[in-house]
């Protein structure tokens, strides 16, 4: 047997084992139980259209708000970390290390209490809004490191070229450095965005009103209400509806960018 034939045999054996395992699992599965518990028609119909108009809508809204503010904070932190002033660098490092070391759940929970108490101010959305502050400060820490790496990845000659043309520091950063840095960090930033989408499910710890539920809370509530697991399958599908196009889009952007280089 030559190499190709050996590989064919090995691949064939692998496929056979895999198929057997799937068939085995299908045989021992209680399909009736699966159908009644996960594909229960009345439950699916009862969730419509709130699963989109409330749950998906809130998931996306919480994600967008968190991402936009976290990005802004992260940008400030990234520049502080690159600052010639040691105080700024130290403050940014302390912030990043602190919030990267804590579970997002803990920070959300903490902010839900701390923000209204400390500032005598209830953010829009009440406790959920305060919980979002927790998501923002946590993700800002991650995104700051990503952005800093991206800014540093822009070749030094770019800033020098802009300066030699008489452009000042701020304008150089805005028109020359940042556009290139952002392109570099689009892939890691997308990972963080997808993680953020999923982490909006942590907001449930602060307690949500019926019109505030995002996909996870919506799924849990309905599972309890209908004593049926169909809502879990439904929200899983909708999470994928939100995340998959995004990851595909970024993969496409990355390929296109590589071609342009």
């Amino acid at each position: 047997m030559n190499r190709t034939q050996r590989r064919r045999v090995r691949d064939g054996a692998l496929y056979a084992v895999l198929t057997l395992a799937l068939v085995g699992a299908a045989v021992v599965t209680d399909w009736e139980a699966v159908t009644t518990n996960f594909l229960d028609g009345p439950t699916w119909r009862a969730m419509w259209p709130e699963i989109v108009t409330v749950a998906v809508w809130n998931t996306v809204t919480y994600t967008v708000i968190s991402f936009v503010f976290a990005f802004a904070v992260a940008l400030v932190l990234a520049f502080m970390k690159l600052s010639p002033l040691a105080v700024y660098r130290w403050l940014a490092t302390a912030y990043i290390e602190f919030f990267r070391g804590l579970p997002a759940l803990v920070v959300i929970f903490f902010m839900a209490f701390a923000v209204p108490l400390a500032f005598h101010w209830i953010p829009p959305g009440g406790l959920v809004g305060a919980g979002i502050v927790g998501l923002i400060v946590t993700y800002a820490a991650y995104m700051a490191e990503t952005l800093r790496a991206g800014i540093q990845a822009v070749p030094k000659g770019q800033r020098e070229a802009a300066q030699s043309l008489g452009m000042n520091g701020a304008w150089t950063t805005v028109s020359v450095i940042l556009p290139q840095a952002i392109r570099i960090v689009i892939p890691p930033l997308t990972n963080e965005l997808v993680a953020l989408i999923k982490d909006t499910s942590l907001l449930f710890v602060v307690g949500m009103q019926a019109d505030q539920v995002e996909l996870s809370a919506f799924g849990q509530n309905n599972t309890v209400t209908f004593a049926n697991a169909s809502p879990l399958l439904a929200i899983a599908l909708f999470y994928l509806v939100v995340t998959l196009p995004m990851t595909r889009l970024v993969a496409w952007l990355e390929r296109r960018q590589q071609r342009a280089r």
Binding site: G157, A162, S164, G166
Partner: peptide
Amino acid sequence: LAAVRSRIGMVFQQFNLFPH
């Protein structure tokens, strides 16, 4: 300094054009 620099053209070994 920026005004002085704007009167001095500079050409680098690595070109340093803005790629975007």
